[in-house]
């Protein structure tokens, strides 16, 4: 009989003074701060690749043709870079000023609990004002988070850092 479940091997490093229970406790502290105290919420629009009817050749779609899973609210710790004054033309004409890139940290455990996954190209909505929702697209999903910065004392990866850049309404405009 074939076993499709991956093998799981207990992590025994730091075992003399840190184990899985401590890990969960640390994450609990962190989530209490991030999700309880900060409560900065973003909305994840994870694109349903199968249901999105894309162009046969280029796999491009119009904004209204993008199909996504039910949006999920995620509490994160985020930072939005300052907006830059830029121009479309190289001679300095046709100025535009868009939001800077968004970078946020999120506990993987929260994503696991909400049964969602952030992948490259997904859209992120953030309500920066009462009447305004701005959208970003994921350019770095932070799926590899075993580096020191994202682990708890080097025990195991706990948080992900996701980087996003802005999208125009022409590309995605949410609901």
């Amino acid at each position: 009989m074939e076993n499709n479940r991956p093998n799981k091997v207990p992590i025994t490093r730091l075992t003399k003074f840190f184990d899985d229970i401590d890990f969960d406790l640390e994450i609990g502290f962190g989530r209490e701060y991030m999700e309880g105290d900060l409560n900065m919420t973003i909305i994840l629009y994870s694109v349903d690749i199968e249901r999105t009817d894309s162009d046969d050749v280029y796999k491009e779609v119009r904004s209204q043709d993008i199909r996504y899973f039910p949006p999920v609210e995620i509490q994160v710790n985020l930072e939005i870079a300052p907006a830059e004054n830029q121009t479309y033309n190289s001679n300095g004409t046709l100025r535009y000023r868009d939001y800077g890139n968004m970078t946020f940290n999120v506990y993987q455990k929260q994503l696991d609990e909400k049964l969602c996954e952030i992948k490259y190209g997904d859209y992120i909505g953030y309500r920066d004002k009462e009447d305004s929702m701005k959208f970003w697209t994921v350019v770095n999903d932070g799926k590899i988070f075993s580096d020191n910065e994202h682990t708890v004392f080097g025990y195991k990866g706990a948080t992900r850092t996701v980087e996003c850049t802005t999208v125009d309404p022409n590309e995605f405009e949410g609901i």
Binding site: Y88, L94, R97, D98, D168, P169, N170
Partner: peptide
């Protein structure tokens, strides 16, 4: 709404 020109366009 951010007063940025929406693509596509020609300059």
């Amino acid at each position: 709404k951010d007063r940025n020109v929406q693509m596509p366009f020609v300059t």
